[in-house]
Amino acid sequence: MTSIRTFLLAACAALSFAASPARSEVAVVLNSGEGTISLIDKASMKETKRIPVGKEPHHLMATPDDQFLIIANAASNDLVFLDPKTGEVKRRLDGISDPYQIGFSPDRKWFVSVSLRLDRVDLYNGADFKLVKRLPLPKTPSHVAFDTASAFAFITLQDSNEIAAIDLKTQAVAWKMPVGKQPAGIWMTPDDKHLLVGMTGDNYVEVIDWRAKRSVKKIKTGDGAHNFIAMGDGRRVLLSNRIANTVSVIDQATLEVVDTIPVKGGPDCMELTRDGKHLWVTARWARKVAVIDMATKQTVKEIPVGKSPHGIYFASHAPRR
């Protein structure tokens, strides 16, 4: 009798396993203009669900342990924690003032929240999200990058055409330096030597020797040079040019553009598949996500999403360096 029951249970389990579809990964897209997230089935490249998440979600990132995906709702003053694989909302953390862009320092000690609208940068304890310091930092602080030693957080100041370095030990602004027009995306090269800064008001990336506080090169990319993501090979980095409607591939060793990929509709944030074959790009003005075949440089799919799609994430992404 027992053996029959065991057999039936095993058969049921086998049948239910066979009947259930293979679990596909989701891509999460923030529709900043309508306060929702689009969950896209990554295999079929179709939006499966659109759910309200909060007001003005712009940027997102995984926790350092990859257990959660954090969505920063700027106008809701909160962070929403999702399951990074399924997109399920796990919890909401209130009292985070105007989080526009967010970042963890490499040593995980600091969670930095950049308040673009209110000219503030907030430093939170990376372990428990308790506010340690609120720094006024005009004008229009935009994006954040860190050095490998987690000594500094570097912030672009979009409307005063500067970058600022915050000393994380003293939690004070250590220095500022002028750069080009409307700096937005900021990226530390893997050798920790240079900061790359996207000039959204111009058509180039400015290379900063941050230790010497000196601009050393301008890499011409395209109008509206905006945001970065690594190609995962430790050498190349991708940059979206929001007005030129292109993505530039930059070699971080030679500091040259090595390729240019057309992407329509105001390319903004990007995510690259782990195998490096497909680049997913939010097309800000087109209410779409463009999927690019990196071998042919062609858009293979345009996935309709919500209004003003901004941040994008999936778990099986290329390495961040």
Partner: peptide, 23 residues
Amino acid sequence: ALAHQWLFESAVQPVMFALGFAS
């Protein structure tokens, strides 16, 4: 959405960019 994108990308954004209001 198509009309919105077209009007913005063809008429508004180029002017904003040229006048230095990209942000």
